[in-house]
Amino acid sequence: MLPMEIVIRGLHMERSQLRLGLIISSMIMVNSTLLVGSISAPAKFAVPALAFVFSGLSQYYLVKQSIERSDRNIRVFKELGASHSLLLQTMFVNVVLVGLLGSVAGFVFGVSALFAMQTTSFAAGLLENALLVFGALAGTTVGSYIGIRETLAAR
């Protein structure tokens, strides 16, 4: 399977999460943009920092979803008679190694975009944040998907 196909399939299944994540982060971004708009010019550098802090909440949500998905899969594996070592291996690769690292990679990608654009306008703020959440979501989804596939492919 091509990597792009994996990404598309993964995201196809995550539409509801994507919508919710975007709504949460848009609300956060509106608040932080308005807050920054009301403070003095020298403090405007705080925009990226605020976005970074607040977006952590949506990031937390995405990671939580990733862990819940992993828990569900582990339960299925258990019911189907997977050995303890395979369960541990899957959990490690799925959540710890690829899922979380993928999510962090997406987060770093989003924050980098935020710093690179260096803007305080409301629309740009929303766009930056959408990029951030999209990056984190893609990282988490693709990470856990590849994690579980690769663990099994090795068998």
């Binding site: 993964g10 299944m13 998905r69 899969n73 339960r75 299925v76 594996f77 019911e79 189907l80 008679g81 997977a82 050995s83 395979l86 856990s144 998907y145 579980i148 596939r149 099994l152 068998r155």
Partner: peptide, 24 residues
């Protein structure tokens, strides 16, 4: 079971294969 226990991220063939993988 009543609540479906499939791995949503995997294909149909991979899901059917799972119990066989676990039994080597």
């Amino acid at each position: 079971p009543q609540t479906q226990n499939l791995v949503l991220e995997l294909s149909i063939a991979q899901n059917i294969e799972l119990p066989m993988i676990f039994q080597n």
